[in-house]
Structures are given as structure tokens and as C-alpha cells.
Amino acid sequence: MTPARTTPILELMDLHAAYGGIEVLRGVDLVVPRGSVVALLGPNGAGKTTLLRAVSGHLRPTSGHVHLAGTHVNGASAEKLARAGLCTIPEGRATFPGLTVLENLRLVTYASVAGRDEVLERAFARFPRLAERRGQLAGTLSGGEQRMLAMARALGADPALLLLDEPSMGLAPLVVDELYEVIAQLSASGVAVLVVEQFAGRALGVAEYAAVMRGGRVVAMGEPADVQDELPGLYLGRGLERGTG
């Protein structure tokens, strides 16, 4: 199956997902076009992370559809999706603290078409700091270095779609700049990126589109400039009808 170039890389239709009896996603509609960067914004508890879990295969949606490159993938396992070219970097450190930098990168090859040496080369070319610390346990790296190691997975795995959860959380501004450079670089090489951020500024700088979630739904989507103007109202709850059901 060769989907047309115009098929979006990710399309969510009326997606619902729940933890136990608590419904968190209440009908999400979202499109990520091929090769584009989409920023997903929204206040605490809007369902952003849950959305990523539902797409990455860790949480089975209760209803609705997840289409990746035109294929219906509800309920596919996370490892199959990862091998098919979906790279998800969850929030936090997202590395294995008990493994060395080299060993962490070795695991990248599961999802990659590139070989071991190629993965290392790309990671170390972008983050020379990791090369210096290749033998060190990931748990002993600084927070920023661990985040770089996690991002190195996106570089090595040749994904078609990269899901990033709060890449800037808790990091020094310089490191955040570096990470967003990588996002821009990946985007330039044709990787589509869906980046979740609670604080909008940095993400809107690289995004071509922005979507805002609140209460388990996408309540606004558009060009970053348009969304930015509406953001305070969307975050604070003004200027918007709260849907029912």
C-alpha cells in the first residue's frame, strides 16, 4: 500500500480514551500533515499526554480512529508501531538509567533501518557531549544530557513521525534551544513532528500548525500566529463554549 503523498501522516477521528471509568479523551480530531511540525498546547490535565499514549500504542482507545499514514492502527502494540517508524519520546528523562550511553543507543537500532554504527555516528555528530560520556551510565548524566540521549533516538531511528512530550520541561534555556534545533533539523529532513508543550512560546517558534487541547478535546487549530492570540483565552477558559457530553 502506498498512500498518496497528500495522506496525512497522522489523523485522529473522534478519538476517545479512558483510564478506568474516567474518560480523558472525549472526541479528539487532529491532523498532522506529512513532514510538518504541529505544536499541541493546552493547560494541565487537558489530555495531551494521554493523546500521545493512545497514538503510541500504550493506551487502547475506547472508540474513534487513529490513522497512521492512512492505516487504521487502533490497538496495535507499541513495539510494532515503533518498528514501523513511529518514534515516541515520553516526558521526563526517557532513558534507561542503568544502561550506559552506548547501550541506550544500541537499543535504538530496534526501530531503525540504520545500523549500529550509523546510529552512533548521527547521535555523536549532533551531541558531541554524548560521545565524551559514551561509557557512562545514563542515570549519572545531567538532566539535559539525558534529554539529549533521548532525542538521539529520534535522530537514529529514521522515524516518519516523531511524538515529543514536553521536551523542554525542567531544562536550562540553552539546552532547550539545542533540542529545538534538532527538531528543526529533523523537520527539514522530512520527519513530521507532533510536539506537546504546556508553555507555548518555544514550540510555536518551530511549528507550522498549532492545536490547543482542553477538557479532552482539540478546541482550536490553526497557524501559530492565530492560535497565539487566542491562547490566553483558551487557557483561562474565556471566549469559548464548553461542550457537553
Partner: peptide, 21 residues
């Protein structure tokens, strides 16, 4: 409510074998 972690869920009904994004 049904909450399933598909990592440990029974084999998925969706065929992703050979699929590539």
C-alpha cells in the same frame, strides 16, 4: 470501564506487519 494496556493486551487485531510509515 475497559482500560487496557495494549503492550500486554492480546495480539492486536490490526495488521501492522510490513507496514511502514
Amino acid at each position: 470501564g475497559p482500560v487496557e494496556d495494549s503492550t500486554d493486551a492480546p495480539d492486536s487485531r490490526v495488521e501492522t506487519e510490513g507496514m511502514s510509515l
